[in-house]
Amino acid sequence: MQPSHVLVPMDGSPLAQEAFEHALAVFDCKLTVLNVITPLDSPLSEGGVLDVDDTRLETARKQSEELIERASNRTETVARDIETAVEIGDPAEAILAYVDAHDIDHVVMGGHGSEGGRIARRLLGTVATAVVGETPVTVTVVR
């Protein structure tokens, strides 16, 4: 069944970019690009040195808009309903909360595996593993 609203979480990585382009190519529905800013006290924060402020929020919004523009220029995309959103918090928790609060029925995201750790984390990455394991909607992980 074709989804009606796809969420694409973005972290600025090439895999996230590929996930967005995949969502554009495959799904003909509303897309939301979500950037999650991690707070200062989060272990996932940018070195634990950047506090959340209006500048970081505006930068995240601009990055989302630039991503949409770049992807649209590289694909033959018809006019689409694409929104951007910025949340603050733990990335996995913010993605899960956004899915619950905004009638999302599919998530497309990049997976960042590593060499260490359990098999699922090695294959998908910690955030993708949490989202796949906890969200009630279908998740496509782009690798």
Rank of each mutant, 00 (worst) to 15 (best):
I37R: 12
A23C: 07
L50R: 15
T38D: 07
N35M: 07
E69W: 05
V33Q: 08
K30E: 03
V33M: 13
S45I: 07
D28N: 05
D51Q: 15
D51Y: 12
R61M: 08
L40K: 00
G48C: 03
R61T: 08
T59D: 10
T32G: 06
E65V: 11
S45H: 13
T32R: 04
D53R: 07
R56D: 10
I68Q: 03
L50S: 12
K30Q: 11
F27T: 03
T59M: 11
D28I: 09
L44S: 08
V26D: 00
Q63A: 10
Q63K: 09
P39N: 00
V33G: 15
E18Y: 03
H22R: 14
D41K: 13
T38R: 05
S42A: 13
D51P: 02
T59Y: 01
L24V: 10
F27D: 06
A19F: 01
G48D: 11
A19K: 07
S64C: 15
D28E: 14
E65I: 12
K62R: 09
R70E: 12
G48E: 08
E46M: 15
E46Y: 15
E66K: 09
A60M: 08
L40T: 01
E58M: 00
A23M: 06
F27L: 05
D41E: 01
E65C: 12
T32Q: 04
D51K: 10
D51N: 14
P39C: 00
P43N: 01
P39R: 00
A23N: 09
S45D: 14
K30L: 06
K30S: 12
I68L: 09
V36K: 03
I37L: 09
R56N: 04
S42C: 04
T32W: 05
G47N: 14
E65R: 08
P43K: 03
S42H: 08
C29Q: 15
D41C: 02
P43E: 02
E46N: 12
S42P: 08
G48F: 03
L50N: 11
E65Y: 08
T55P: 06
T55D: 07
D41A: 14
E58I: 05
D53Y: 08
R70P: 09
L40I: 04
T55V: 14
L31P: 12
S42M: 05
V49T: 15
D54H: 09
A19P: 07
S45E: 05
T32K: 06
A60E: 06
R56W: 01
E21V: 11
D54L: 15
E21Q: 05
T55W: 05
E66T: 13
T32C: 11
E58C: 09
K30N: 06
R70T: 13
V36Y: 00
C29W: 11
E65P: 08
Q17M: 13
L24A: 05
R70N: 07
L67D: 02
L34G: 09
K30Y: 01
S64R: 13
I37M: 09
D53I: 11
T59Q: 14
E65H: 13
R56S: 15
R61N: 12
D51M: 13
Q63P: 01
D51F: 03
I37K: 02
Q17D: 13
E21Y: 00
T32H: 01
V49W: 00
G47Q: 08
S45C: 14
D51G: 14
Q63C: 03
R70M: 08
E18S: 13
V52H: 06
L34N: 07
A25G: 10
V36H: 00
D54Y: 13
S45N: 14
